[in-house]
């Protein structure tokens, strides 16, 4: 039976205000806040790589779990903003954690990648043992490419989050997971080589507001629960307006959706686990399920509820 044992995160030091990013793309800070709910985001230093960010989140998670990296059976790293085609950051992070033969796999799915990796980890941990899932993104290297498009450039930030999935112990028991993909919309959110990220925002909004609530409801129902039973939704922090729409569709109060997008922007695959690390830092409220959910390029989307153990 899989458990979520611990979370970790890392945010780069440099804070980029709406005024600063707005000056690049010709829009004001208030407009950015209104369309996204974002006040600021973090940008990594020029010499910080996706693997650097991932390593810091991994170390934070392992330290909190009081677990040596040598106990890991696998590492899965989601990222859509890696610096090169291959190898991805997984092998580098494993090496820098002192591992020389533990399988380390890249999951290049961007926003939904961490959810997919958590689902895979929860299904593999019985045979592989403790699995470290990381989402790490240096989106600044993507959104600052020319020509900058304001609807994209204002949204994203850098950071990393991590989750330790265990076959035997943890504070939250994974109830199940549902993963979905629909390539019919693959062109609506894409990152070509050497060009900025391209997004059909209306298509993303339209599909996400339909698909995510449905995935959550169907999965919870399968496990004898409904959205109203969930204590906290830990969702990919894409856009505050989108999160609010999904809360509305599920008929649950918007404040059940943990939100830190105002402080960090959309950190793609990292965002859900950064949110989880903050939520866990404030204590793991027991008795009610927590529900992870994500939607992103592909389109890929899904949900993963877990029962916080008393």
């Amino acid at each position: 039976m899989p458990f979520l044992r611990e979370f970790g995160s890392y945010l780069p030091e440099r804070i980029v205000s709406n005024a600063e990013i707005g000056a690049h793309v010709g829009c004001d800070a208030e407009w950015i806040k209104n369309v996204s709910g974002i006040d600021q985001r973090r940008f990594a230093a020029d010499d910080e790589s996706v693997a650097d960010l991932a390593l810091r989140a991994a170390q934070s998670c392992l330290e909190k779990a009081k677990l040596s990296a040598s106990a890991l059976g696998m590492i899965l790293i989601a990222s859509g903003s890696t610096e090169r085609q291959f190898p991805g950051p997984a092998a580098t992070v494993a090496h820098r954690l002192g591992l020389d033969s533990t399988p380390a796999i890249d999951v290049p799915l961007a926003s939904a990648g961490t959810l997919f990796a958590m689902s895979l980890a929860s299904r593999l941990c019985d045979s592989l043992g403790e699995i470290l899932v990381i989402g790490a993104e240096k989106m600044s290297s993507v959104v600052l490419r020319q020509p900058m498009e304001r609807g994209v450039a204002i949204l994203f930030g850098d950071g990393a989050g991590a989750c330790l999935v265990s076959p035997s112990e943890g504070k939250a028991r994974v109830l199940g997971s549902a993963l979905h993909s629909d390539g019919a919309f693959a062109e609506d959110l894409r990152l070509p080589f050497d060009r900025p990220l391209e997004m059909n925002g209306r298509s993303v909004i339209l599909q996400a507001t339909r698909k995510v609530p449905r995935a959550i409801s169907e999965l919870l129902e399968k496990h004898g629960r409904k959205a109203a039973d969930v204590g906290t939704f830990l969702m990919h922090q894409a856009n505050q307006n989108l999160i609010d729409r999904i809360a509305l569709a599920l008929e649950v109060p918007a404040d059940r959706f943990y939100s830190n997008i105002a402080r960090y922007g959309n950190t793609s695959s990292a965002s859900m686990l950064i949110a989880a690390a903050e939520w866990a830092e404030a204590g793991w409220p027991t008795g009610q399920p927590v529900c992870f959910a994500a939607f992103g390029a592909g389109f890929h989307w899904g949900a993963l509820p877990a029962q916080v153990e008393a």
Partner: peptide
Amino acid sequence: LFDSGLLDSFALADLV
């Protein structure tokens, strides 16, 4: 409806 600014992108889901 959207390029004109009469409706914002998030209203699209409500419209459908």
